[in-house]
Amino acid sequence: EQYVVVANYQKQESSEISLSVGQVVDIIEKNESGWWFVSTAEEQGWVPATCLEGQ
Rank of each mutant, 00 (worst) to 15 (best):
V6Y: 06
E32K: 05
G22N: 05
V21D: 02
Q23R: 04
I17M: 12
A7E: 11
S15L: 06
V25M: 01
Q55T: 11
A7P: 01
N8K: 11
G45F: 01
G22T: 02
S20P: 03
E43D: 15
E13D: 10
W46V: 07
E29T: 12
N8W: 03
Q12N: 08
S33H: 12
G45Q: 02
E42D: 15
N31R: 13
A41S: 14
K30D: 01
Y3R: 09
C51Q: 04
E32N: 11
A41W: 04
E29Y: 03
G45K: 03
K11P: 13
K11G: 13
V6D: 05
V5T: 05
Q10H: 09
K11Q: 09
K11C: 08
A49W: 02
S20W: 08
E53F: 05
I17C: 14
V21G: 03
V4E: 14
E16W: 03
G22F: 01
C51I: 14
Q10C: 09
V21L: 07
Q10R: 11
V38H: 00
E29A: 12
G22Y: 03
W36A: 10
I28S: 05
K11W: 03
Y9Q: 02
S15E: 08
W35R: 14
N31W: 04
W35M: 14
Q2C: 11
G54Y: 12
E29I: 15
Y9L: 03
V24E: 14
S15C: 11
C51Y: 06
K11D: 03
Q10L: 12
S39M: 13
G22H: 02
S39A: 11
D26T: 10
W46S: 02
Y9P: 02
A41V: 09
W35A: 08
V21W: 03
K30R: 12
V24D: 06
L19S: 00
V38T: 01
V6M: 08
G45H: 01
A41I: 14
A41R: 14
E29M: 04
Q55M: 06
A7Q: 10
W35F: 13
S20G: 06
C51M: 01
Q23W: 05
G34F: 02
W36H: 04
Q44S: 09
Y3S: 14
Q23H: 09
S14T: 12
G45I: 02
G45P: 00
Y3E: 10
T50E: 10
V38P: 00
W36V: 14
V6P: 03
T40H: 08
T50C: 09
E43H: 13
I17N: 02
G34S: 07
W46L: 07
Q2M: 15
V21K: 15
T50P: 09
P48R: 05
V24H: 06
N31F: 06
S33G: 11
W35K: 10
V5Q: 00
D26W: 06
V25T: 03
V21T: 11
G54T: 11
N31T: 08
Q55C: 02
V25P: 01
E29K: 14
E13K: 13
L52G: 00
F37I: 08
E16T: 08
A49P: 10
Q12I: 07
V47R: 02
G54N: 14
E29G: 07
S20H: 13
E16Q: 13
G45M: 02
S15A: 13
S14N: 15
V25E: 01
D26R: 10
K11I: 01
L19G: 01
E42V: 11
Y9V: 06
E29V: 06
I28E: 03
E53R: 11
V47Q: 00
V5L: 00
W46M: 12
S14I: 14
Q44V: 07
N8V: 05
V6G: 08
E53W: 03
E32M: 07
I28T: 10
Y3I: 08
S15G: 11
V5P: 01
G54W: 09
E13H: 08
Q23G: 06
